[in-house]
Design a protein around this nucleic acid. Sequence first.
DNA 1: ATTTTTTATTGACCATGGTCACTTTTTGAT
DNA 2: ATCAAAAAGTGACCATGGTCAATAAAAAAT
Lengths: 192, 192
Amino acid sequence: MQKPVQKRTLKTRARLLAASVEVVARNGYEALRVEEVVQAAGVAKGTFFAHFHDKDALMEILIGERLAACFDEVEGGAAPKTVDQIIAALEPIHSVMTSERYVFDLLLRYSGATAITEIGPIAHCFERYFRVVSGWLETADVRQDISADLLAEGVQAFAIQAMSLRFCALHSATTFTDRLQVYLEAWLTPAA
Amino acid sequence: MQKPVQKRTLKTRARLLAASVEVVARNGYEALRVEEVVQAAGVAKGTFFAHFHDKDALMEILIGERLAACFDEVEGGAAPKTVDQIIAALEPIHSVMTSERYVFDLLLRYSGATAITEIGPIAHCFERYFRVVSGWLETADVRQDISADLLAEGVQAFAIQAMSLRFCALHSATTFTDRLQVYLEAWLTPAA
DNA sequence: ATTTTTTATTGACCATGGTCACTTTTTGAT
DNA sequence: ATCAAAAAGTGACCATGGTCAATAAAAAAT
């Protein structure tokens, strides 16, 4: 996968990815079947697994790309200063992350790199989330007693918590945004 | 499943659970195969799925029971007052939760109730986690500007974050306990 | 006791992700 | 151009979770 020298390889991989995007567009991520993808791409099943270690690896790429596009957009704008602005700025990212329960579960599963040598697309996204938020917090209107990095880790933890509860029937009284706002105000601008 | 009136049903279910515990004891949760369980229990495969909706439902029960035992133990002790004491008190629970990556992933996946009518064993555990910690925080040496409930939600979020990073090769420099301590001090006793 | 009805069990079968020995294609050396 | 070696592709096959019509057992009705 590191050195796809042959032109054929690139073309096959591109066909597989294009077919996957198409299949996902039709029925969502969860409903994607490898069989469907290889048929749409016109290759054999074995070829799929020569290009992607497993189905999850393909999903990582697809979802990772979508999130990367979100990050590009988000980083294009001005750095948010307040809690409300931060939540608003992150909204497109959180929206994609919670677009499907299946997607969110997969994100959590691959949020950390298993081995140092292979940092997957999703782990990259979480790294980027951390860096972006940390960058904002350095000049934002927030508590200064702890580092922006630590604050950013907390923002990530609370965002994940709020997204988790979004899928939970028990806590559906509060909306995702409202909950995240309560969390982040308590975390970023404590009054104690 | 609600009304197992027949004695036979209870016996079969008990045999399946006992066999499962045995299988898990031998090779861990991840390696459990339904085929292995039904063979050990001496029943047909279909019987398994008449008693448990799917493999995950069995896992929820097994892991839920283990966690419940931890909670019983933890709740038996005195209420911790400081961050260090809280971390120490929760240690047995966090230990089980991170005993296997497979277990942790499953916990995250079922931490929320899908439907209000059916709160699974794992969702119950997280509810209990929340209640226990919230109870402690009411009389603990922590910030008082926000409710104990909100503080407890944060503790849960940070604990999950710390546990996640425990499985992440990128952030293995810091240990789980150290990281959680940094988080909770910043969350529960902010100096700003 | 016999029949009927409800409940539990069975195992052949299916769906789907993943493997691998073999074939085909490409590349590079002669 | 020809051939040997390397890379890519193939599809029959496997592993495993899950289904369901048929069967057996238990409970209720007669």
